[in-house]
């Protein structure tokens, strides 16, 4: 069964989300804090090495959103990790656009809101877990050059073009590494 592949710790975190939504359970929030805050901080420091204050601010913002939006999280439509990743991603974008030299008024809240909460059904639920598993297992087997580019794009917040400049490689090489990786993870099926 699909369910069996979910780690108990992850199940516990989903239960914690429910306790937060239903009972405003601060102990549950504290457990999520211990798990996610170090990850959100690393995620921020990957983009801005040494920016500890920024990392703390964003981590706090993510925890506030977990606290206030726990009731909107639907386990059938996305794993908790994916949900928190999207919160962290959006909070990081929001912080950078407000604090960088070239500020932007484009509010990221409007740009990603609908992507994750699709109408969930049991079929999609099973599908979602299969995809999840395939990606996780595939990721461990990726060659390091492919993984390196994915890390630049996802964790360091670089575009393909910026990744190419930084690694002194042609843009085409970067693109094909990412495509190869996405193929192996069965994320990208050519249309």
């Amino acid at each position: 069964m699909e369910r069996a592949t979910i780690l108990p710790a992850e199940e516990q975190r989903v239960t914690d989300m429910q306790s937060i939504a239903q009972h405003r359970d601060q102990a549950a929030l504290a457990r999520l804090f211990d798990h996610y805050v170090p990850r959100v901080r690393s995620f921020c420091l990957a983009a801005q090495p040494g920016a500890n204050i920024m990392a703390d601010d964003i981590a706090q913002e993510v925890m506030i959103r977990i606290w206030n939006k726990a009731h909107t999280y639907k386990p059938e439509s996305a794993s908790l990790n994916t949900w928190v990743f999207t919160l962290a991603r959006n909070a990081r974008i929001d912080y950078l656009r407000k604090n960088s030299r070239h500020q932007s008024d484009i509010d990221p809240e409007y740009l990603w809101r609908n992507v994750v909460d699709e109408n969930a059904d049991p079929f999609k639920d099973a599908q979602q877990k299969r995809d999840q598993e395939r990606i996780q297992q595939g990721l461990d087997k990726l060659p390091s050059d492919q993984k390196q580019v994915l890390a630049k794009v996802y964790l360091e917040g670089k575009t393909h073009k910026e990744a190419a400049e930084e690694l002194s490689l042609p843009l085409g090489t970067i693109k094909s590494r990412v495509r190869l990786a996405l193929h192996k993870l069965t994320i990208y099926v050519k249309r």
């Binding site: 990790n81 999207t86 995809d131 994915l150 964790l155």
Partner: peptide, 8 residues
Amino acid sequence: EMLGSHLF
């Protein structure tokens, strides 16, 4: 986004 969450 799933891929992102694993890297994260």
